[in-house]
Amino acid sequence: MKSPLAYHFNQVEHYYGTNKALDIKELAIPRGSITGIAGPNGSGKSTLLKLMTFAESPRFGEILFNGKKEHLFSPSVRFEISLLTQKPYLLKRTVFENTAYGLKIRKNSKDIRARVEEALSKVGLPFEDFAKRRWHQLSGGEAQRVALAARLALHPQVLLLDEPTASVDAESAARIRDASLAARRDWGTTLVIVSHDPQWLNEISDTTLHLFEGKAVKPGRNTMIPGPWTTQPNHMAFCDLGGGQRFFAPDPPARDAMGLISAHDIKLDPPEKSREFTNQLEGIVTHLVLDPKTAMVIASIRVGDLMVITLIDQQTVAASGLYPGRVVTLFARPSAVTWL
């Protein structure tokens, strides 16, 4: 029987020279799931994707793909996993040749035209207008869409997307999002998406993995609180969120430590009869989306410069009349913060 997991990371450590780039104790990505990956620059996101393509092997630990140890150029990896890099590289050929490149390697030349046409239409590029264009006759957004089409044409089992919408126009971003989602819907493709856009990740992903300095915590709905932390004599440290608001947490391991707080630990109601000190924060609701799995509403709330995520049940949303733009007060226990 096939493993229900597309990827399973076990005690994986990866280094560049002597720099530890990635340190993941365990990570399981189910087939057909959408996993978001968030984290600041240099936190190991791109490295993680590279390991997932098997273009590099981790120095320690093992990565199972469909339950098996795999390596680069093995047919089950080569023809099933496709990565869309952050800056797409288009071959110096026509759009058609770019999109058909992987298909031609796979030697299924019968329906290349149809597959290319389908892939291009998924990213909103009409075949007639674009197939004959050359690589330098495309805008940045169009180039990114062609690059995605080249992957979609392969109907991959796994599609790894590195910042697919980071530097493209709004229309291209929308097309890329739709096309990625369609891949999972139509072919059950497992998606792993690195993005700076937490709203979008929240909206579409089943879970989000937070990376900081190569380390990851269990995927879930979390808010990252970057430092710097100012330690006080009473073992409580605070972080300035901007707008005069402070978030308190106990004993950070370092001044620049990354704090993580689960969406479940951020509440709209004050805690009852608690003797513990509670962070009380003013924020504006910016975004409300339905989490398809839990039937809860994911609310993104801006507190100062920080985007905080919380989960609210649908009744509460209706009862308290939450809408984007509404000012709310949030409560969070300092001890709920974990450190990356």
């Binding site: 590279k50 890099t85 797409p88 590289y89 110096k92 392969l154 790894l160």
Partner: peptide, 27 residues
Amino acid sequence: DPQLKLTLISLGAGKKNILATCLWEVR
């Protein structure tokens, strides 16, 4: 571009494909 090799790998190119395509890219 170092991205080229990664791109080709992720499109399923084998070693020979990579060599041939790289040469054609720098024509």
